[in-house]
Amino acid sequence: MPTTTASTHRSQPTGPAWTEEALDLLNLVRQLAAAELAPRVDEHESRATFPRELLRTLGRAGLLGLPYPQQYGGGGQPYEVYLTVLETLAQHWLGVAQSVNIHVLSCYGLAAFGTEEQRAAWLPDMLGGELLGANCISEAEAGSDISALRTTATPNENGYAVNGVKSWVSHAGAADYYNVFCRTGRDGVRGLSLLLAPADTPGIHPGTQERKMGVRSSPTAQVVFDEAEIAEDRRIGRPGKGFLIAMGLFDRGRLGIAACAVGLAQAALDYAVAYAKTRKQFGKPIISFQGIGFMLADMATQVAAARSLLLDAARRLDAGQPSSAAAAQAKLFATDTAMRVTTDAVQVLGGYGYVADHPAERWMREAKLLQLIEGTNQIQRLVISTSL
């Protein structure tokens, strides 16, 4: 089995975001990923078991709150740095990178729209990784069109009574809290609000785990809300602010998926190159044959282009510039690239690429997920075309 320790993308990143502290952080993540993630991925993915303790380890290392303020226990890092860390994790284990991304997104509403009292009370434990979060947005009849959400939060003397069913909730059953996007007012986007609900709230019932094609170590299920009582002080932002919060969440979520896609594609490229250098046919390494060499050249070019789109969008976000279209472009191109590159990696390996003894077949299955979540790539094209 070829080694993948020497990546074709190991040069240190440059630019204003990359302080000495950020570079040291990235080196730490590379070491941590190689030592803690790579040896465990096969077991957890084959058994579909969630590596909760590993997420706690990453939290204690400061990786679950990187783009948030230091005063609340975050890392105070630009999104560019955080996304590069996410890419590095995804090179070794997409499921864990996805969990980091999901948790970081679950902190966004509170960090960006919560009151100072709410942030001080809840954000430190969330950013420190002792608590694990999840977002409840999608429903059976409402995905990217969140104006169609039907989960209701009816005001009462205790706060809100929440009723409805959320679909495709990552970390369902494993999370300690849920960000619940629900309807507190009229139809349409202006009637949506965000509630931060403890997972042990009576009336919150995670469903049976979905049996997925890939990323099996990350639990996904429906979450049922049946007269779940959520206190009024758990509302994040004013009533009707939910749509605005969700839009910021979508931009950041799409960048996170793009980073995971670049990491997955890089892993597949590295593995295919290493294999092509050692596999011999007709007395020569197969990388010397134009049919293989040119395929690898295209793969490398696509990965580099995806990374450039991702970094451009991240820098726009860090600069406070409009970044929705750039995030959609990065997500679209990077996930399509991951699908192409992982498929081509299987082709380079030939029959070996089709068996579970090599990770290429798993990467190909995992890449498909990235084209679907945080808005399918057809939705990304809609976002981009609308921006034109």
Rank of each mutant, 00 (worst) to 15 (best):
C107L: 00
G114K: 04
A327C: 06
V223M: 14
W18P: 10
K212S: 15
A228Q: 01
V383K: 13
A134R: 11
E116C: 00
W122V: 00
A258K: 11
T4L: 14
A268V: 14
Q329C: 08
D125L: 12
C107S: 10
R52M: 01
Q371V: 12
V180T: 15
L132M: 13
S106G: 10
A297V: 06
L194K: 06
D298S: 07
T88A: 15
L132P: 02
A325W: 15
Q222S: 06
T49A: 06
Q98I: 03
M299A: 13
L127V: 01
A161L: 06
A97M: 05
L196K: 08
A175W: 06
Y68T: 06
I373V: 14
T154K: 04
R315S: 02
G353Y: 09
S218H: 07
A17L: 02
K166H: 11
I146A: 02
R47F: 08
T4C: 04
S170P: 10
V215Q: 07
D42C: 04
S170L: 05
V41A: 11
C107V: 12
T14D: 09
T84F: 01
A274N: 11
E53H: 13
A261F: 14
A272E: 13
A161N: 12
R381N: 15
A172K: 15
G248M: 13
Q347S: 08
